[in-house]
Design a protein around this nucleic acid. Structure first.
Length: 436
RNA sequence: GGCCCUAUCGUCUAACGGUUAGGACAUCGCCUUUUCAAGGCGGUAAUCAGAGUUCGAUUCUCUGUAGGGUCACCA
């Protein structure tokens, strides 16, 4: 029973901030492990001492945590050098690897001893969960290098030894590793390790149809957090790049994804990642939040002097991520609530209605609104009084437009009833009076 | 170039060999209490090309074409 347990791993190298494409492989590995009651391992592949940085490792850990991808085991490849050395020595002893004296690649002319694999030059085939049967000849690979020396293993050796020692049963990784697989299988055979199941994920492309890369604007996952995306929305949206459950449901929670995820439904072809659709996913996930949580978040994103519960409703239906709150502030859409707008007389005019008629309509509005008590000054009551007047006019706009403009000073704004409610009776009447 | 992989609306995708080729995002139009947003309804839009197998091909086979991956003392 224990033998059949699924163990997957996410094995990034901490040489930069990881973008969504990398996290998608983490998500799939995680989902697959959880779905099968297995174990999810995080292994930091930091054997490249020059390029690996602690900062990046921390960013990876932080990002996984934020996404809700909890791992059961953690390894740092650089801490496994002893076992890498053990297998290296074993291979040399058994003849599947040898020490080769060669001139250093840096052009210094120094002769070094490196460790090469004795390539048997055979056809290697493996079954890939996504791509199917793949066969490759390994003779082009030559006697590839396993390690710089006994204490400095290279990628292929380290991966194979660690996957074996950590009991990895399913290697889920990017398609760029397909051509690495045969030589890793060769090493497995040499050290007597079983071959795990492989699933090579198709690449994630940017809008330019090229591989997603930081150089072309791909963001680190922590940047999405800064932009005010919900982790569950990112999880959902990224999982849907190159995978779908085959039903028409698109919005999934963390737990629903675990239940639904299947490797067999992963796409074979690369997928273009759409920022627009990610925003849509986020908006849908915001809708699932309780009213309280939405209020709390919006309030947090508002500057202190603007933290007023009353404007939350008009903000919440106009944003798809929290940072859009800032955008609304910057475009001045919310200013009317905090300061009396400066009006341009002509803008009160609806179509060709004479200005006298507009003033007259505004006055009727003032008259009826005066009759509402302060505490009943809400959008329903306001609407109930204003609409009957508007209905008597050739066009409702002759009343509604000037009222809305007088209150907001904007060409585009929420409807006049809600604005009046937010402003309160006094401010509403005062603004209407000024417009007459 | 060698090896490997892939190919359905602009994008993500669905379709036991038989469907008016379905859905979502985006886009366009209409409606909904002037405008904006939200919401509702509807529209435009796709099987890379050519052969073959078959009564019938988006689906199977081959070829072509186009993309992509990989060929390190990086991972």
């Amino acid at each position: 029973m224990l033998e059949s347990k699924v163990v997957t791993r996410f094995a990034p190298s901490p040489t930069g901030f990881l973008h969504l494409g990398a996290y998608r492989t983490a998500i799939f590995s995680y989902l697959y492990a959880r779905k099968n009651n297995g174990i999810f391992v995080l292994r930091i592949e930091d054997t490249d001492k020059e390029r690996s940085k602690k900062e990046y490792e921390e960013n990876i850990i932080e990002s996984l945590k934020w996404l809700g991808l909890d791992y059961d085991q953690f390894y740092r490849q650089s801490e496994n050098v002893e076992r890498h050395k053990f297998y290296l020595e074993k291979m040399i002893k058994e003849g599947s690897a040898y020490i080769s004296k060669e001139e250093a690649k840096d052009g210094s002319g120094i002769i070094k001893e490196i460790i090469r694999f004795k390539n048997p030059n055979i056809d290697v085939s493996f079954k890939d969960e996504i791509k199917g049967e793949v066969t490759m000849n390994t003779k082009d690979l030559g006697d590839f290098v396993l390690a710089k020396n006994l204490n400095e293993p290279l990628f292929h050796l380290a991966v194979v030894v660690d996957d074996f020692e950590e009991g990895i049963t399913h290697v889920i990784r990017g398609e760029d590793h397909v051509s690495n697989t045969p030589r890793q299988i060769l090493i497995q055979k040499a050290i007597g390790a079983p071959t795990p199941m492989y699933a090579h994920l198709p690449l994630v492309l940017g809008a330019d149809k090229l591989k997603l890369s930081k150089r072309r604007g791909a963001l680190a996952i922590t940047e999405y957090r800064k932009l005010g995306f919900l982790p569950e929305a990112i999880l959902n949206g990224v999982a849907f790049v190159g995978w779908n459950p085959g039903t028409e449901q698109e919005i999934f929670t963390h737990d629903e994804l675990i239940k639904t995820f299947e490797l067999s439904k992963v796409q074979k072809s690369p997928a273009v990642f759409s920022e627009e659709k990610l925003e849509w996913f986020n908006k849908e996930h915001i809708k699932k939040l309780s009213q309280n949580e939405i209020e709390k978040n919006i309030l947090e994103w508002l500057p202190e002097n603007m933290r007023d519960m009353k404007i939350v409703p008009i903000i919440s239906e106009r944003i798809s991520k929290w940072s859009d709150v800032k955008k609304m502030i910057n475009t001045g859409e919310l200013n009317f609530f905090f300061e009396t707008p400066v009006l341009v007389k002509e803008k009160l005019i609806f179509k060709n209605t004479p200005i006298e008629k507009i003033s007259q309509n505004l006055n009727s509005a003032i008259n009826v609104l005066q009759n509402i008590n302060d505490k009943d000054f809400n959008k329903e009551n306001i609407k109930n009084l204003l609409m009957p007047i508007a209905e008597t006019l050739p066009s409702r706009g002759e009343l509604l437009h000037p009222v809305r403009y007088a209150l907001s000073g904007l060409d585009k704004s929420p409807d006049p009833f809600i604005i009046a409610e937010i402003l309160g009776k006094n401010e509403t009447l005062s603004r209407l009076q000024k417009a007459v």
